[in-house]
């Protein structure tokens, strides 16, 4: 899976939680949660969605690394690669 495909999958998960998200307006290298209204429950649901779609379990300790959409996609890519 290339990064474009992965980003698409992550966005799909994000939009299932926050349907109002407009990809065109989302700046992928700026903090995600300042652009999208995600409370802690929503954020947890995003992570659960990623887990279900990509089989990646993101530990709580790694939350701090996941600030932007790019961070999230890069993190997932790395985890997927290491899993292979």
């Amino acid at each position: 899976m290339d990064d474009q495909e992965l980003k698409k999958r992550v966005l799909t998960v994000l939009k299932s939680i926050a349907p109002e998200v407009d990809e065109a307006e989302l700046v992928s290298d700026r903090p995600l949660r300042s652009q999208v209204d995600l409370d802690s429950m929503d954020w947890l649901n995003v992570l659960i969605g990623i887990h279900q779609d990509l089989a990646i379990d993101i530990p709580e300790a790694d939350y701090a690394k996941l600030v932007t959409l790019d961070d999230l996609v890069a993190y997932c890519a790395k985890r997927l690669k290491s899993a292979r």
């Binding site: 802690s40 429950m41 947890l44 992570l47 659960i48 887990h51 379990d57 993101i58 530990p59 709580e60 300790a61």
Partner: peptide, 16 residues
């Protein structure tokens, strides 16, 4: 944090 470490993301708890 300790509790959640052992939990898969689907069973993780929130401070709330």
């Amino acid at each position: 944090a300790r509790e959640n470490q052992a939990r898969p993301v689907t069973e993780r708890m929130l401070m709330g």
